[in-house]
């Protein structure tokens, strides 16, 4: 059930990209500035669609929100060393794909605390490394990859151009066909009128 009330008792239904729905408490949802801006005051009829994110990701994000409901008010980013055991376990449980999905969802939902911890975790990956090691940690497109990407884009553009040209050609043909009877009609009328005029003038 969804309700416009902002009490922590109230549960909201969240819909994921798979079309599945699940409950999240109002208190947990209130950590999302996006939710606050969109639904808190006006309420929501039916499930709230966060359909850009899958169920597992959303559940993970709201698991964090549910946990941090009872924590003291957020007062800016913490250093990774200040994270609690629960926080560390929460992050360690995730594989890279899930971690990226959680960052994206947290960014969209504008959950400051979670986004900030995720960013600190990424910064930690780079900490104490030289440039060579940093390059290994982050995915950087190589020159070949960039060239290949450019070629694919060029091919795509060429294909799109061809399609557009064909479409234009077809449209032109259709236009000609559509116009033909009218032109013929005009021509026939003209011929008839000319013949009539000539016959009159002969008389």
């Amino acid at each position: 059930m969804t309700s416009p009330a902002s009490s922590s008792e109230v549960k909201y239904l969240i819909e994921s990209s798979e079309g599945n729905t699940f409950d999240v408490s109002g208190a947990a949802l209130r950590q999302s500035n996006t939710f606050n801006a969109m639904f808190l005051n006006i309420g929501a009829d039916g499930p709230i669609p966060f359909t850009d994110y899958n169920e597992a990701t959303l559940k993970k994000v709201f698991e964090y929100c549910e946990h941090s409901v009872n924590e003291e008010n957020y007062s800016g980013p913490k250093h990774q060393d200040d994270l609690s055991k629960w926080d560390l376990n929460f992050f360690n449980e995730m594989d890279q794909k899930m971690f990226i999905d959680v960052i994206n969802a947290s960014n969209f939902l504008d959950i400051e605390r979670l986004t900030s911890y995720c960013c600190e975790r990424i910064a930690r990956m780079l900490r104490g490394k030289n440039t060579q090691e940093m390059i290994k940690v982050i995915t950087l497109p190589t020159a070949e990859e960039l060239e290949a990407k450019q070629k694919v884009e060029e091919k795509k553009a060429a294909a799109a151009k061809k399609v557009a040209e064909k479409a234009a050609e077809t449209a032109e043909k259709t236009e000609t066909l559509e116009e033909l009877p009218v032109q013929q009609l005009v021509q026939t009328t003209r011929n008839k009128l000319t013949r009539k005029y000539l016959s009159f003038s002969n008389e």
């Binding site: 960052i103 910064a123 780079l126 995915t139």
Partner: peptide, 25 residues
């Protein structure tokens, strides 16, 4: 662990990451 696709992160997230880095990093 596969390389992390840092530059594919949303812009604001990326800025937050940069904020967490010190001058050297």
């Amino acid at each position: 662990m596969p390389p992390f696709p840092l530059l594919r992160l949303p812009r604001l997230v990326l800025f937050e990451v940069f904020k967490s880095l010190n001058i050297e990093e």
